[in-house]
Amino acid sequence: MGGERLKIVLSLTPPLLIIITLFFGGIFYGFLQSLGYQPAIGKYELNFSAYYNVMFSERYAKLFWSGLALNLWVSFASTFLAAVFALFGALAIRKTFVGKTLCKFIYSLNLPMPHLVVAVGMIFVFSQSGLLARLAAQIGMISSPGDFPVLVRDKYGFGIILAYIWKEAAFFFIILMSVLQSLGENFEELAQSLGANRWQRFRYVILPLVMPNLFSASIIVFAFSFGAYEVPALLGVIYPQMLPVMAFEFFLNPDLNARSEGMALSIIIALIVMILVVFYFWLTQAKIRKD
């Protein structure tokens, strides 16, 4: 017995070591950097001044807090709306042939498409020089493309939200279709025979049945959109600026001192996401224990 276990531990050790070194080592080194440890430029003392700078200094505070607000807004709004669109879409077409075909189509086309490509597509379609603006001007809905509402590179992050909805709704849609498929229609039919109308069947049957899956998918989507860089970089404005973009600009700064701020900001982003994930697990665990 003991020998067996030792063997397993020993055989697992090398890969584990590599993972631990790369992952936690990377994080640990990043954390050191965020504390101001930069041997390359002769800085060895550890302090929280980079964190302080990012969050409270006159230079960055405004940018940081507005960025955080934008981040939360964009992530919540896009996650929520993508989930809602996907849910209604899936419910509307799940029983049709179109539904299944569309599902396959999205799976094969939209899911593997990089976010970057979607962002570029957004510019192409929704910007003031984009397809929609020109079309609207052409048919006389607006007098010139410049009158088209600012949906891309706008300070409320609409373009970013749109891009995320486009992408993540497909992800939600796939998950919901498979959940609905596996649930079948028996629960709804039963509820209907017990007197539940269409709305009540949605509210008291479908929603509680898909909620656990919808919620986990939301966490994934939220965490991703909170920390992703490329879409806000392409579709965002200089102010307010989403936090991952701000962090990246610190890294681009030729002044190596800015590295610490960049690292500090990255760690703040990671912490916020982690807190949310832990909160989520706590929520679901608490629920499981209650059951």
Partner: peptide, 18 residues
């Protein structure tokens, strides 16, 4: 269906798990 007053009990009980 919901107004018929005809209630069906399905083969596999289908109690709402939540």
């Amino acid at each position: 269906t919901e107004k018929r007053g005809v209630v069906m009990v399905f083969q596999n009980y289908l109690l709402f798990p939540y």
